[in-house]
Amino acid sequence: MAGDESQYVTLCLGAEVFAVPVSLVREILDYRESFRIPEGPDYLIGLIDVRGRGVPVIDLRRKLGLKPVEIGLATRIMVVDVPLGDRVLPLGLVADRVLEVANFSTEDRDPAPDVGVPWRSEYIEAVVRRNGSFVVIFDMARLLTASEAALLAAAA
């Protein structure tokens, strides 16, 4: 018998596939220019207006230490609700493309792998093997450090 399944929205950064729980996704927008915030971290692109509210947007590639690429026709901003203790931070995540809504069984999920060297893996909730590759499921509450979350909340 298959384990419980949960739904995730999958997104790509180059050839790498990541996933965010559907329950945290507000909407997916075409990429648009944002209002730059002076002296913000390099991964903070700026603010966009989403239904009358300023939402900080981050470049996931830079946040994860990946090489930046040019914005393309498939580039999207996924607006998510990041749980931060007693509140929720709306946050835009820039992805090269958004793929689909996928179901992942709990029995197919593995914890973040031990690669034998220190690396920042606390934002990884699980890894799922799929179609001969891997999908990394974000732990959205841990994607940002407390100080980063405070900075982005203040920017909004």
Rank of each mutant, 00 (worst) to 15 (best):
R142H: 13
V127Y: 05
E33I: 01
V127G: 00
G72H: 14
L93V: 02
R120K: 10
I71S: 07
Y31V: 05
V135N: 03
V94M: 14
R36Q: 12
L89E: 08
A153Q: 15
L29Q: 09
R130A: 02
I77S: 14
I45W: 00
I58N: 07
T106P: 00
G116D: 02
A126W: 03
I28K: 01
A74I: 05
T145L: 07
V79N: 04
F104V: 01
N131L: 05
I58M: 05
D139H: 05
M78F: 06
C12I: 00
V115D: 05
Y123L: 04
G14E: 08
L91E: 11
A149R: 12
V25K: 06
L60F: 05
T75I: 15
T106L: 05
F134L: 09
A153P: 01
G85M: 13
V9A: 12
A156K: 12
V25C: 06
A141S: 14
V25M: 08
L44N: 01
P56I: 03
V22P: 01
M1D: 14
A74F: 12
E70L: 12
M1W: 03
V135L: 07
G46S: 10
V82A: 07
R97A: 14
V128Y: 04
E125K: 08
D110G: 01
A112P: 06
G85I: 12
P38R: 02
V94L: 14
G54S: 14
A146K: 10
D49H: 06
V82Y: 08
L73F: 14
V128N: 06
D114G: 04
D114C: 02
G54R: 08
R32S: 11
G3Y: 09
S105N: 06
V88T: 15
E122A: 03
G54A: 14
D49K: 03
V135W: 02
E148F: 02
L144A: 07
A15E: 13
L11P: 02
R53M: 13
V69W: 06
S147G: 01
R61N: 15
A149P: 08
F104D: 04
T145E: 12
M140I: 05
R62H: 08
G92A: 13
R51T: 11
S133I: 00
V9R: 07
P56K: 09
L66M: 15
R87M: 11
V50G: 00
R36G: 02
P41E: 15
R129K: 09
Y123W: 11
S23P: 00
N103V: 01
L144Q: 04
E100Y: 00
P90H: 15
G3S: 11
A149N: 10
K67F: 03
T145V: 03
G54V: 09
R26S: 10
